Computed example of a mutant assay.
Amino acid sequence: MIKLHHLNKSRSKRIIWLLEELGVNYSIIEYQRDSQTFLAPPELKAIHPLGKSPVIEDDGLIIAESGAITEYLINKYSNGQLAPEKSTTDEVEYSQWIHFAESSAILPLLLKMFVNKDGCDTNFLADYADTETFKVISYFNDSLADKRYLVADKLTGADIMMSFIVELVANSGQLANFPHISAYAKQLATHPAFQRAENIELGN
């Protein structure tokens, strides 16, 4: 059975969604953030030296990093679903979105979040975070024009990875400014496995 080390209010919620979509047997080991620092508890370091989540255990392997986990699970368990056909242009685009989620997209959003949380005046960082956030989210929004999903007109791991970016945009109160992302968010929410993951995250 797959074990998912899951931290509340973290990127690991999308791994719950993926596991639900795959229909595999799994268990969740839950961790709670510190109420003051909002950091992960030290117990996670017993699983992986960085003490981050998500981490999965499967067949003796310990795998960290959301993109790597997503690719591993889809390659092993999806039976050709949740990914485009191999050696196609769709596969190339799929791979780009998988990695975009945890590289170009996430960095400015996290910078913006940290600047806001810190509350201090900055000489450079706040304006940089604002500019880069608008750039990457506008790119994401424009890429969804006339699309239900990012690649191949079907749900793939790219959508599951990018769902966390959608959540951050929504939590920032900016979703209405990006109509294609807003429509995309509603489309993702139609999936029963997405809804089950939401309920699991909320403890329902």
Score class of each variant (00 low, 15 high):
residue 10 S to Q: 05
residue 13 K to M: 14
residue 13 K to P: 06
residue 16 I to W: 08
residue 17 W to I: 03
residue 19 L to H: 07
residue 21 E to K: 03
residue 23 G to T: 04
residue 25 N to H: 08
residue 26 Y to L: 03
residue 29 I to M: 04
residue 30 E to M: 00
residue 31 Y to S: 01
residue 32 Q to F: 00
residue 36 Q to P: 00
residue 36 Q to V: 00
residue 41 P to H: 01
residue 41 P to A: 00
residue 43 E to D: 04
residue 45 K to S: 00
residue 49 P to H: 01
residue 49 P to C: 01
residue 51 G to F: 01
residue 52 K to H: 04
residue 52 K to A: 05
residue 56 I to Q: 02
residue 60 G to F: 01
residue 61 L to R: 12
residue 62 I to H: 11
residue 68 A to Q: 09
residue 74 I to H: 11
residue 74 I to Q: 13
residue 75 N to Q: 14
residue 78 S to V: 13
residue 80 G to F: 11
residue 83 A to K: 15
residue 86 K to W: 11
residue 88 T to V: 11
residue 89 T to V: 12
residue 92 V to R: 10
residue 92 V to N: 10
residue 92 V to W: 10
residue 96 Q to C: 04
residue 97 W to H: 08
residue 103 S to F: 12
residue 103 S to Q: 14
residue 104 S to I: 09
residue 105 A to S: 15
residue 105 A to G: 11
residue 105 A to Q: 15
residue 106 I to A: 06
residue 106 I to E: 10
residue 110 L to E: 14
residue 113 M to S: 15
residue 113 M to R: 15
residue 114 F to Q: 15
residue 115 V to T: 14
residue 116 N to C: 10
residue 120 C to F: 14
residue 123 N to P: 06
residue 124 F to H: 14
residue 125 L to E: 14
residue 132 E to C: 08
residue 138 S to A: 09
residue 139 Y to D: 10
residue 140 F to Q: 13
residue 141 N to D: 15
residue 142 D to M: 04
residue 142 D to V: 05
residue 143 S to R: 15
residue 150 L to W: 11
residue 152 A to C: 11
residue 154 K to W: 10
residue 155 L to Y: 06
residue 165 I to W: 11
residue 165 I to L: 11
residue 169 V to W: 11
residue 171 N to Y: 09
residue 173 G to K: 09
residue 177 N to V: 01
residue 181 I to E: 07
residue 181 I to R: 10
residue 184 Y to E: 06
residue 186 K to C: 04
residue 190 T to S: 07
residue 191 H to Q: 06
residue 192 P to R: 03
residue 196 R to G: 00
residue 196 R to K: 06
residue 198 E to T: 08
residue 201 E to M: 08
residue 202 L to T: 05
residue 203 G to Q: 08
